[in-house]
Design a protein around this nucleic acid. Structure first.
Length: 328
RNA sequence: AGGCCAGUAGCUCAAUUAGGCAGAGCGCCUGUCUCCAAAACAGGAGGUUGUGGGUUCGAUUCCUGCCUGGCCUGCCA
């Protein structure tokens, strides 16, 4: 079976995944497996640039891997592994950092944003974040990197870095990755305002029980203008309706779109229907997750097998890199 | 390496003048109200005051070792 090329993507170990992760990344990961050889990496070293404590990093890694596998990332199709388990990436990071102008890094908007977020912890690793990301991508000779528009500049940075390296050492060992711009739906959190994220505590975890799911869904912010049951609502400004568009049938979406506007359906019924549809959608996932969780060692085996396969590629690349540079 | 400044609730900061029960705003949780949510109101939780010693009847406050961060000076690569 020949596929169209190799995809690499990494995600920080954030623990149990939520609807934002699911719609924004995981579903895409699963779909890409059909057409591409995929490498999915849990980037624990990247996490160190912003983490104040590493207390939960092991468990978060495990929980995220569990969600990924339950969601359909297939370790027989794809390589799933932990970044720090293949230390060659650190070596390549160091080498690439020598061809990276500092100003280019500090000019990136994501860096400026991080400095605003954590002015007391502006470390070298944080500045070099895009360089490590580049190392991830090129160490595994990725052809394609699926990203949302906000991450596109980082892949563009990787391409430039590859060109710098290849030019500097008059070689072509490093592969310039193509950007695969993916349509990332903007998933708004339960507050109805900001992007869904664990740190904002406005998320809906995939692994909740149906009862817990309904409880969280009931707290979702709706159209603030609809104060009474008899008031007509505006689905266009209601995040519950956005969710319906993803998890409910076209008929149900049309019905809510009509009935909400003429106060034919209340928010409670609307939310209950969403919770029901979401629970139905996630039921197979939750079943698989529960089954996988029975044998934690199997998850670790998957990650070890991924490491083994990733190492083969990494070692090959590094041999070529050292040779191209002319290291003794 | 030396000098100076800072570290207090999840966040932003008070309280240190002259040692005397560690507080506010925002956020979070609960309740009232709402079809739900929001808003409003009421209530609640949250702290080894960076950390180890010392002085004292009593230390967030004074002395001191260390840790972390920032600014300045110097030294090495």
């Amino acid at each position: 079976m020949t596929k169209k090329g190799r995809v690499f993507s990494g995600a920080r170990p954030t623990g149990r995944q939520h609807l934002g992760n699911y719609l924004g990344a995981i579903q895409n990961y699963v779909a890409l497996q059909k057409e591409y050889d995929c490498i999915y990496c849990i980037v624990d070293v990247h996490a160190l640039t912003t983490l104040e404590t590493t207390r939960d990093i092991k468990n978060n890694t495990y929980e995220m891997a569990l969600d990924w596998l339950a969601a359909g990332i297939d370790p027989r199709e794809s390589i799933v592994f932990i970044q720090s388990h293949v230390p060659q990436v650190m070596e390549l990071f160091t080498i690439l950092s020598m061809v990276t102008p500092l100003g280019k890094l500090t000019d990136l908007p994501t860096f400026k944003e991080k400095v605003r977020m954590q002015p007391n912890n502006v470390n070298l690793g944080l500045v070099g974040y895009p360089v490590l990301m580049t190392a991830d991508i090129v160490l595994y000779k990725a052809d394609l990197v699926p990203v949302g528009i906000d991450q596109a500049s980082h892949v563009e940075f990787a391409r430039e870095t590859v060109r710098s390296f290849n030019f500097r050492y008059n070689t072509s060992v490093l592969k310039e990755p193509d950007i695969k711009l993916t349509e990332v739906p903007k998933v708004i959190g339960t507050d109805g305002q900001q992007k869904m994220s664990k740190s904002l505590n406005n998320h809906i975890e995939l692994a909740l029980t149906p009862e817990e799911t309904e409880k969280v869904v009931m707290t979702m912010v709706t159209d603030p203008a609809r104060k009474r049951r008899s008031d007509p609502g505006n689905p266009d400004v209601c995040n519950v309706f956005s969710m319906h568009k993803v998890f409910s049938s076209p008929e149900e979406v049309a019905m809510i779109n009509l009935e909400c506007r003429r106060a034919g359906i209340g928010c409670v019924d609307c939310k209950k229907l969403f919770a029901k549809n979401l629970n139905a959608h996630l039921a197979p996932f939750r079943e698989r997750r529960a089954a996988l969780a029975q044998n934690p060692d199997d998850i670790l085996d998957v990650l070890r097998d991924g490491e083994r396969r990733a190492r083969v590629i990494a070692e090959q690349t590094m041999a070529e890199v050292r040779d191209a540079i002319g290291l003794p």
